[in-house]
Nucleic acid binder design. Structure first.
Lengths: 352, 352
DNA sequence: TTGTATGCGTTATCAG
DNA sequence: CTGATAACGCATACAA
């Protein structure tokens, strides 16, 4: 048997050639004839070390291809390193830009961003919750209106978590929102200003608060105009293109058909364009359409869609910023931020 | 002054109430009157500990809201924990489903997925490279055809990295690809079978290999049919809707205008539909169009687009699987996987 | 300016 | 079955 190094903790033998991805500061230190402390300093606090030593150490690190292990560092330095953005549906075009906004702010603060798509599955939510509870991510941006399975309201109360786009007032969490009710009203107002009185609504999935809020805006507008609520004019949607198409067909087959439809989101609205076409009707001559979100599709649909634009990038940025504040100053700094939308006029509405 | 605990490493004072997110196994151990080793075992290897002890420990952990710190664990247990997917453009609809595929496989292997959007910025690539080199992520799925800044070809050679969708043969890396040349030829063949002879091409950005491959397929098809290459029939694109629209206008303003256009991707093809419309031309009666990718937009454009479908979900899944194999068995297991596309027939092509 | 020693929170080893 | 102890890789307080 070979001798073992005398000092406990000493390496068995200075491995001939350890793969670059397994080098540690000790390896660099040995080669440079300095202590690991000096290596650490040379790499992260260059000013605290003699110029010659610094260059020596850095040269050797470079030569060896050494990169400090961030896990080791993170265990030692308790600084936030990453945010997790949770969405239900990764291929919902609404989210990408929002994520971009968050990413930019995170990056500026030296945080990385993880994105998780849950598909609404509890089991997946659970998995991501573990990352958070296990402190592998330092903050949570949630793009659906509930806490992911595995995080109790009590835990959430004292944690850096922010709800974006979709609120849940029951949870008292920080949030970045738009006034869905108000802007739905505004969309309706736009239609009414152009003479529409018989206006239908294609809802989102009513299980989601955001859908109910836009529906509420629809109702409010009706009420303020002294118009009755006609259940026949409300078609249940689910934010999908296909459902929007079908819903439009239903609505436009009504004996006294609506002159305009307020769609809970753009995707459904684009579906509605085709639904109208299915019946030989065209937009906006036969029926006017207004959407919500201003996704890219809204610009390139035929006709281009008049819609309510949500400031997605800003929403993402604000969320990240809020989160970072909470991480730095503790969750006491809870906040509710409301951003403005904008009505984008294109060609899917005509005056009557 | 108060006494300090006798043992070095002993905590100064059993903090009255430490926030739940700062509890350690030591806290649980103390409360349960066992060692940290037992706590660890009770939590992660329940079978290796006496039933009564186990329940006691787990009960207390639960009661305290203790969650093991994954960073500590990861430092100790060198097991892979996450993959990083790098894309240039997060809001490119092509990627979402691919990411989903990768995520599913990763999840099944107890890995989490990070997604990074670089916007093509070296500085951002650098940032993500550091995550990888710092071993905070264990594998890299790259959705653009080059190594991110900060990773040298030599490093890459021995690392779990896989290129997806877009190849770079110069780098000898594992990859998951489709035969872009072949399927571009197939698209052209489809047009030719329907009598088209004068066929234009809207390219992708030629800086990208994938664009050049599809262009090559275009040329090959021409050559095999004995047709000449007419530079006038090639319009430079950049995969964008707007550029596709403009390019189509150029092409269709030609004195002897093409009867069909092969577009390097769907987004440009949808743009081309509008470009044709701008000139009072309609698809497919005046000009036939075929795309590439089969993004969602292709289904809902008017007319719906005939196109080449890439198996995006499978590509993502295959990439993740490849990566996992490399992580487990070392990068010796390099592999090049080629997946099949499918021609999706819709209504943007007519026979002449 | 540099080195020594310690601990971040967990788990593996080994002895009891 | 359980406990003591030593790492994992790094950064810092403190001593030199």
């Amino acid at each position: 048997m070979k001798d073992k190094a005398a000092k406990p903790g000493g390496r068995a033998a200075p491995a001939q050639k350890r793969p670059a991805h397994r080098l540690t500061m000790a390896d660099v230190a040995r080669r440079a004839g300095v202590s690991t402390a000096t290596v650490s300093r040379a790499l992260t606090r260059p000013d605290q070390v003699n110029e010659k030593t610094r260059d020596l150490v850095r040269g050797i690190a470079e030569e060896l291809g050494f990169r400090p292990n961030l896990i080791g560092r993170q265990l030692r330095v308790r600084a936030a390193t990453s945010l997790l953005i949770l969405v239900q549906d990764l291929d919902n075009p609404f989210y990408a830009e929002l994520i971009k906004g968050a990413e930019a702010v995170a990056r500026a603060n030296h945080l990385s961003v993880m994105v998780g798509g849950t598909d609404g599955l509890e089991e997946v939510e659970q998995l991501y919750s573990e990352q958070f509870l296990g402190r592998r991510v330092d903050g949570l941006v949630i793009l659906f209106g509930h806490l992911p399975a595995g995080i109790s309201p009590k835990m959430a109360e004292h944690s850096p978590i922010v709800l974006v786009s979709e609120d849940n007032p029951a949870l008292n969490l920080s949030s970045v929102l738009v006034d869905n009710v108000g802007w739905a009203e505004r969309a309706m107002g736009y239609l009414m200003e152009r003479g529409h009185r018989r206006i239908a609504h294609i809802t989102g999935p009513l299980a989601r608060i955001i859908s109910r809020q836009r529906q509420e805006g629809y109702w409010n507008a009706l009420a303020k105009a002294g118009l009755p609520q006609d259940p026949a004019l409300e078609a249940l949607g689910d934010f999908s293109f296909e459902r929007g198409r079908a819903a439009a067909r239903e609505l436009l087959s009504l004996p006294d058909r609506p002159t305009a439809i307020f769609c809970a989101n753009d995707e459904a609205a684009v579906g509605a364009i085709l639904g109208a076409a299915d019946l030989g009707l065209s937009v906006p001559s036969d029926v006017s359409l207004i959407g919500f979100d201003d996704i890219m599709l809204a610009q390139i649909s035929q006709p281009p869609l008049t819609t309510i634009r949500q400031p997605r990038q800003q929403m993402g940025a604000a969320a990240a910023q809020l989160l970072i504040d909470m991480i730095e100053h503790g969750p006491g700094k809870r906040a509710h931020k409301q951003l403005d939308c904008e009505l984008i006029e294109r060609s899917s509405v005509r005056s009557i």
